[in-house]
Design a protein around this nucleic acid. Structure first.
Ligand code: SF4
Ligand code: SF4
Lengths: 137, 137
DNA sequence: TATAATTACTACTTAAAGGTAGAATTAATC
DNA sequence: GATTAATTCTACCTTTAAGTAGTAATTATA
């Protein structure tokens, strides 16, 4: 009952970047050290964030990463989507499946409330909302 | 953001068993066929449920499984515990970790509500509550 | 007692997540 | 132009979850 490591790392990375005032470039080494994420795994994740268009990368010396979109436009659910970790409408938090309207599983009624609440949180929390709050490690 | 297959199967198995009137024995073959769970995987799960004392098994011909405890005394969280899938107090739904009171992560405030709701659901839903509702596949 | 039907045990295979290594590419600066 | 600091690519390794196979142990019944 957890997010994948990739999702968790990505959230922490982007929340940390959103915290930095001015949109200066941040490189993989400083991110990895600040957030205690294995360097090689972090670069793998960053490359995915670039591919999907959340951040842009500047290669070469003095390069690094910065946001492509405004932090107010990046929702946590956008991040989870990348790693297939978000909660789809047709899929329950429990993921017991077999649900088709005709046949709801035994837990349906009990679980709809937290499910919808989680979905709402994921979809309505932007990086801007998160920025400045909590410690970003 | 899902339960493990073992947890999901176990919930479905036990919910299905709870549905059967009178506590007659149910064998692995009928459970596997009724619930579309691979037979060999189901027996592996059942053996764990036996070890942990939720159900008792009768070996040999005419054997099978039945509840050891009353269905009103078996909470969904008891099932999740077996497969290390329940939500611990010190661990968040998001599992970003690093939380120690001094240092809450960026998402803490937003996630506490669904976390507590999920915990409450898991801990307060018994198999008896579930029995008779929904289809148990 | 032999047989058939059942769970339990041991060990393996497969698939996916998590993580690592090294070389290739890019671009600023000396 | 060479050097250096950075991202990207390809390929691999490790760990864990998921699933399978075969056999041993158990027990009711014929
Ligand atoms: S709880 Fe509802 S939505 Fe979730 S798997 Fe069961 S029937 Fe489907
Ligand atoms: S949201 Fe709160 S409880 Fe969850 S990991 Fe972050 S600080 Fe800990």
């Amino acid at each position: 009952m957890q997010l994948s490591n990739s999702s968790k790392y990505a959230i922490r990375i982007l929340a940390y970047m959103a915290d930095q005032k001015d949109s200066k470039l941040m490189n993989a080494t400083e991110l990895a050290e600040a957030l205690y994420i294995p360097y090689k795994f972090l670069t793998k994740i960053m490359t995915e964030l670039v591919k999907v268009g959340l951040v842009v990368s500047i290669r070469g010396r003095e390069g690094g990463y910065k946001f492509e979109k405004k932090t107010s436009e990046i929702m946590v659910s956008d991040i989870l989507d990348i790693f297939n970790d978000s909660i789809k409408d047709e899929q329950c938090v429990l993921g017991i499946g077999f649900c088709n309207g005709l046949c709801k599983c035994a837990l349906h009624d009990q679980w709809m409330e937290p499910k919808l609440l989680l979905q709402k949180m994921f979809r309505e929390s932007s990086l801007e909302d998160i920025a400045g709050r909590g410690c970003k490690i």
